[in-house]
Simulated assay, not measured.
Amino acid sequence: MKIDLSGKTALVSGSTAGIGFATARGLAQAGARVILNGRKADALAKAADTLRAEVSGADLVTFAGDLATVQGVEALLAQVPAVDILVNNLGIFNPQDFFETPDSEWTRFFETNVMSGVRLSRAYAPGMVQRKWGRIVFISSESGLNIPVEMIHYGFSKTAQLAVSRGLAKRLAGTGVTVNAVLPGPTLSEGVEEMLADEVKRAGKPVAEVAADFVKAHRSTSIIQRAATVDEVANMIVYVCSPQASATTGAALRVDGGVVDTIA
């Protein structure tokens, strides 16, 4: 299968590292014009330089701004008024016990993980409908189905993304615009590497091995018995953004290594 996104413009929110960067790279490799986004100008410039080095002829636009805020989204829309592909990847996670998680953290997670995608979808979907083609993808998580006891506030936000994704797909029925959610499981992103750094130092093992140990201990239902790579997750996202995925909408597509113990 050859995915060709030539002539399409794709926005990936939160794309300076991790799954977001891997997705931006995959979309650029498929020929899309890609808008990279991050809050810090230096990290954004570094990501753009890396992507240009890895993808010959990559057509990139950078936007430095916090898309978890109304002001950030408004500034983006002034610079990029229309896109064909929207990947709502921006997200945060942080383990914290339910009884120690204040209102401010619930609000921060909701604004970042949920409302960023709501605002961007509300802004960009009408243009997609007018052009009779578009792709909107929410990057949720297996934690939206399998709520982690150590970060209930995170699981809540990921479940909310599934509700928005499914509802918006139904709202856009018959328009040529598809809306889907992709649900990664444990993934060896920079954020996870940082979370495991102390254990890597203590155990003296490679980070991939420590991540596998974590999966076996804390996500024992995993069938692959390891963390996925960011590219493995990005492969699914890029496919869902493609013309080939035209009959896939309203779906929750798991790239969780089998962590969620269900046949559906």
Rank of each mutant, 00 (worst) to 15 (best):
V70A: 08
Q71D: 15
Q71E: 15
G72L: 08
V73L: 04
E74M: 08
A75C: 05
A75F: 05
L76M: 02
A78S: 14
A78E: 15
Q79E: 15
Q79M: 15
Q79W: 02
V80R: 13
P81F: 10
P81K: 09
P81Y: 13
A82K: 10
A82P: 00
A82I: 04
V83M: 13
V83Y: 06
V83C: 15
V83K: 15
D84V: 12
I85V: 10
L86K: 03
L86N: 13
V87P: 09
L90H: 14
L90G: 11
G91F: 06
I92H: 06
I92A: 09
I92R: 03
F93A: 05
N94P: 02
P95N: 10
Q96W: 09
D97P: 06
D97S: 07
F98C: 03
F99Q: 11
E100N: 09
E100A: 04
E100F: 02
T101H: 08
T101K: 11
P102D: 04
P102Q: 07
D103Q: 05
D103H: 03
S104I: 13
S104W: 12
S104K: 15
E105C: 03
E105H: 08
E105P: 00
W106V: 12
W106R: 04
T107F: 08
T107D: 14
T107P: 00
R108H: 14
R108W: 07
F109C: 06
F110M: 10
F110I: 08
F110L: 10
E111A: 14
E111D: 14
E111M: 12
T112V: 04
T112D: 02
T112K: 02
T112R: 02
T112L: 01
V114H: 12
V114D: 06
M115L: 15
S116A: 14
S116W: 05
S116L: 02
